[in-house]
């Protein structure tokens, strides 16, 4: 474990908590893409199947349980608890356009052709595009509340910190996980446009920000 990966995991946790608490306290999920949250729950489900088969560390196990629980709680709030505030007219991204290529690629490009490895690869590729429905929804509604922007900022920051972690691990222990690195770079690139707008607008107190 290194400081970059720890900071990344904390940024990820903060992002998930920001969104969950926003929905819970405002008792509304307006402007939130339920599809993205379902995809994230699917990412954690397919990536953390080894939760019961391999023990890495207490931190690793605890964080997996926390991420699974919080992501399913978020999906529950959106589709069950506060479903009448769910904005289904604007959450119209065709997720099959993401799932089909990701499933195909995870069968083509993986470390070993075993169910666990293919599911892990699927989760890595899916995570890189899981935010698309949310970004699409923001372009459709024309703006995002500032709290949603903070969520996106920490979510994008988490994988950017993981990239630094991978550089660090490559130079200190020769660790190189090609699938995770390539996918993580693609994922972070999707946020670049948002990062620019976030820094130039949201941090200047503009509150609402609209993606082009």
């Amino acid at each position: 474990m290194n400081i970059f990966r720890l900071a990344g995991d904390m940024s990820h946790l903060v992002a998930i908590l920001i969104l969950l608490l926003k929905i819970w306290r405002s008792r509304s999920c307006a402007g939130i893409s339920g599809k993205s949250q379902v995809l994230f729950a699917l990412v954690f489900t397919t990536r953390y199947l080894d939760l019961f088969t391999s023990f890495i560390s207490a931190y690793n196990t605890v964080m997996k349980v926390v991420f699974l629980a919080l992501s399913y709680a978020t999906v529950y709030l959106i589709y069950m608890r506060f479903r009448n505030s769910y904005d289904s007219e604007n959450d119209t991204f065709r997720v099959e356009f993401l799932l089909v290529p990701v499933i195909g690629l995870s069968f083509l490009e993986n470390y070993s052709f075993t169910p666990m490895e293919i599911l892990w690869t699927f989760s890595i590729f899916l995570e890189s595009v899981a935010i698309m429905p949310q970004l699409f929804m923001i372009t459709k509604t024309g703006e995002a509340e500032s709290i949603t922007n903070h969520y996106l900022f920490f979510l994008g920051l988490y994988r950017a910190l993981y990239i630094v972690n991978w550089v660090w691990r490559y130079h200190t222990e020769g660790f190189f996980d090609q699938i995770a690195v390539v996918s993580g770079v693609v994922q972070t690139i999707f946020y670049c446009d948002f990062f620019y707008l976030y820094v130039t607008r949201v941090l200047r107190g503009r509150g609402k920000m609209s993606l082009p």
């Binding site: 990966r5 995991d9 990820h12 080894d50 391999s54 890495i56 560390s57 690793n60 964080m63 997996k64 991420f67 470390y111 070993s112 490895e117 892990w120 993981y162 972690n165 490559y170 222990e173 020769g174 660790f175 190189f176 996980d177 090609q178 699938i179 995770a180």
Partner: peptide, 10 residues
Amino acid sequence: GTDPNLKDEL
């Protein structure tokens, strides 16, 4: 390098 199959990252 260390084995990427050792999934020690979240």
